[in-house]
């Protein structure tokens, strides 16, 4: 019975991991960025399956509520609202050599982390008396709200800063539209003779906006 259960668990993990990897690949490589955003949402749901497999139902619910619901909506809104984002794909490595280097780097990161997990089995270092905590929401609430609520206050402050920062960026954009700065912002490089005006600097600003707002999560 025990062996069958372990085998069943392994099969479940391989299935979920395969689905997540395929969806992550589609989210990265799909040509239409709107489709890529939707694949990201499905991938986040698949990751919730891994949390269920780890017997952490609260984290799985959080994953679906925040990643599938919130972050995906944020990305889709970003794609729909930001000019020219729909025509662009994610970053394309033009030379095949760069592509190969990136592939080798990512594969080596995966292999090294798998080797470390095999050599230093962290799951054996967790004392078994902590395991009931993962399944019981009561215990989790006791731990989080009862004794470690300062973490939640830090999260609240982080969300506060994120909201204020995102509204400040929008305010800055308005200022820039009302009073465009037309000074010469170009760095003193002799090759680049063309001075960068305020309008040609727009795409850089927009890219930074998206990054800032994604960090709010």
């Amino acid at each position: 019975m025990q062996e069958a259960e372990i085998l069943f668990e392994n099969i479940e993990f391989l299935l979920i991991a395969g689905v997540v990897i395929v969806l992550a690949y589609l989210a990265l490589e799909h040509r239409d960025i709107v489709y890529a955003a939707f694949f990201f949402g499905f991938m986040a749901t698949g990751v919730a399956g891994i949390f269920i497999l780890l017997e952490a139902p609260f984290v799985a619910g959080l994953q679906i509520a925040i990643y599938t619901g919130g972050i995906t909506a944020l990305i889709i809104f970003g794609v729909l609202l930001i000019p020219r984002a729909q025509d662009s794909t994610l970053e394309v490595l033009h030379s095949p050599r760069m592509r190969k280097v990136g592939l080798v780097l990512s594969i080596s990161v995966v292999v090294i982390s798998a080797l470390i997990a095999l050599l230093f089995p962290w799951q054996e270092s967790i004392p078994p008396e902590h395991i009931p905590l993962s399944q019981s929401l009561e215990g989790l609430a006791e731990w989080l709200w009862g004794t470690h609520a300062v973490y939640l206050e830090i999260i609240a402050m982080l969300l506060f800063v994120g909201l204020v920062g995102s509204v400040a960026i929008i305010r800055m954009e308005k200022e820039e539209q009302l009073r465009p700065r037309t000074e010469d912002f170009s760095l003193p490089i002799p090759e680049e003779s063309e001075p960068e005006s305020a309008t040609s600097g727009m795409p850089v600003l927009e890219a930074r906006d998206v990054k800032e707002e994604k960090e709010v999560e």
Partner: peptide
């Protein structure tokens, strides 16, 4: 594309 200051509503939702 719409004015992208509307993205703040999604951040509020999050």
């Amino acid at each position: 594309s719409f004015p992208y200051s509307y993205i703040i509503y999604t951040v509020l939702f999050l």
